[in-house]
Design a protein around this nucleic acid. Structure first.
Lengths: 329, 329
DNA sequence: GTCTGACCTGTAAACGATTACAAGAACGAT
DNA sequence: ATCGTTCTTGTAATCGTTTACAGGTCAGAC
């Protein structure tokens, strides 16, 4: 005995399928009609088929979120925010991880044409012309959580990481640190390049030279540990800014292993202000790039564009703030 | 100009829609036919519509993963493992958070009848008869990642947390600790009850009495901090086992705030062996309950059952191990 | 009493694929 | 040359909804 269809309900209620559909979708009907349909639905345990419905109405009520790595706490934060907005609007969330390669991202965007979701929030680590082209041509609305050129003509929500780094540098300088190093993630990523430039500019504004800059293999904790020895010895630096919290925690571990105290010997600042910043020891001063807000607003932009595909693309920049904790003096 | 349909391709190639469909699905066709269809597809940029396809074939090639909280690192690990297996098999992953309430879970399972996914992996925090009933009656295959009674007649993958706690206790006792406390999560959850009993039994096996037991409001970091003061003073205990890593890290913070050293004054053991255990300071000795493996095997069970719905339900138990780090002597 | 309009309801045509079935072509065996 | 078999292709039904359109009922206005 398979699932009852709308036709079975119509038969049981002695009405037409159209009427059943109308009652179920809240279109006007007489009280008696409504009552009969309700009863039949109840009796048969009828549940409308989402597949058939989405074929007909051309919508699946699903949205896709594509991130590089679900393990990164910053994406967890974004994902939670997106999920909240999206599910409140009656959509389900499809999560895909794109991996490191840009061609995977392009394939993903192109694949949206299959219509398994009504929109896409993508947070690309690396961006090239192919990706931008695929986003422009995408069959469904796309919102980019990250930095793409305005010519892409797409809704974006991004952080202002240079300004965020500026906050971190200002803070460190105010506390008397002058020999400041920067541990970046891969410089060929979008956040990587932005942060490198942001750091250079921020130091220049204070007439300082970088104590050092280094680059981790990716934005993970082990990469942070591995890269830490490439920073100069403690005498040569009194503060390290890291391109995200995972790297920062990796560095702190390495510092501790070398008998250095945080913040007395070396101050450490992370970025993202993820839950990890709060949980690390000492708690990590971190640049809050508004990941939850970015997720929320990206989801809202996407919903708005689904409602009205003609609106001009918006480019939202979420302002950073600094969460000062005990890893800085 | 809307998306081309299979009919447009057929027209362009001068063949029937059936032939196009067959070529696209790799059914036998002559070289010439294959070539003409390929060319037309290429030219029009045709991409088959997933909605129509899933209506006809009765499958969406989507699977749902339902967890209580995407922010918990243990679910992140599981999710990553599930995603990997599932996407390798050509499925997409739909992630939903169920929240704390059991009725949400029941509604979710019932809602699977809409057919928006071909299967469900659910990791319920709280289980009642309604939930079991809804799982039994679910239209699509369900795998439970967690502990439900055998009478549910459903594939399950679960951890052996009592045995895991036993490992932790053995370890602590071997290192000379005798006054061992337990910080549990909510005792009305499935993992909560299992862990409480596991702790009691493990101590009994060593002829020890619990130094104390306390219960946190949920399985989060702030709850761990908040609950720590409810444990007895340091003189009365020399080790704390916590029901997960987040609680353990919360406790360590609180201990540090009171000037106590880990592990010298108090040893701390977590559970889940999540990435956080490695990242915390000092690195946390943690019971590895095999969350990645549980995720992987749950996904595999689900795929197997989709292939063959008649197979008898399996109940897999993943064996725990202890990852010893510096939070214990 | 008739006519107009409003309002429900039912019939049937979509939506875009897959696939059962039938028809036609090709080929080998007799 | 005829027949039967196999292989390829096309026609049309189908999946389960939604919805345009038409038909029917009923009330109100003249």
């Amino acid at each position: 005995m398979s699932r009852p269809t709308i036709a079975a309900v119509a038969r049981a209620a002695g009405v037409s399928v159209a009427s059943v559909s109308r009652v179920l979708n809240g279109l006007p009907a007489t009280g008696e009609m409504t009552e009969r349909v309700r009863r039949a639905v109840q009796e048969l345990g009828y549940v409308p088929d989402a597949r058939a419905r989405s074929l007909k109405v051309g919508r699946t009520f699903q949205l896709t979120l594509a991130v590089a790595d679900v393990g990164n706490p910053v994406y967890v934060t974004m994902m939670r925010a997106v999920e909240e907005v999206v599910s409140a609007a009656g959509y389900r969330l499809v999560v895909t991880t794109t991996g490191r390669d840009v061609v995977d991202e392009v394939a993903l965007v192109r694949g949206m044409a299959r219509g398994y979701a009504d929109g896409l929030v993508i947070s690309p680590l690396r961006v090239d012309d192919d990706l931008i082209k695929s986003i422009r041509e995408c069959e469904v609305p796309v919102v980019v959580a990250g930095n793409v050129p305005a010519r892409a003509g797409v809704d974006t929500v991004r952080a202002n990481s240079p300004k965020g780094i500026r906050l971190a540098v200002d803070h460190l300088v105010a506390r008397g640190r002058r020999r400041i190093a920067f541990l970046n993630g891969p410089a060929d990523t979008v956040p990587g390049t932005a942060r490198a430039k942001g750091f250079a500019d921020a130091l220049k504004a204070h007439d300082l030279h970088p104590a050092a800059t280094a680059e981790a293999a990716d934005f993970t904790f082990p990469a942070g540990r591995a890269a830490a020895p490439r920073l100069p010895a403690a005498g040569k630096l009194d503060a390290v800014i890291c391109a995200n919290d995972l790297l920062a925690v990796g560095v702190m571990h390495e510092l501790a292993a070398n008998g250095l105290r945080v913040p007395e010997d070396v101050a450490v600042v992370g970025m993202d202000d993820s839950e990890l910043a709060e949980q690390s020891f000492p708690p990590l001063t971190s640049v809050n790039l508004g990941s939850a807000e970015r997720g929320r607003r990206a989801a809202e932009l996407l919903l708005a564009r689904i409602e009205d595909s003609t609106r001009t693309p918006r480019r939202i920049v979420v302002q950073p703030s600094l969460s000062v904790r005990r890893s800085t003096p």
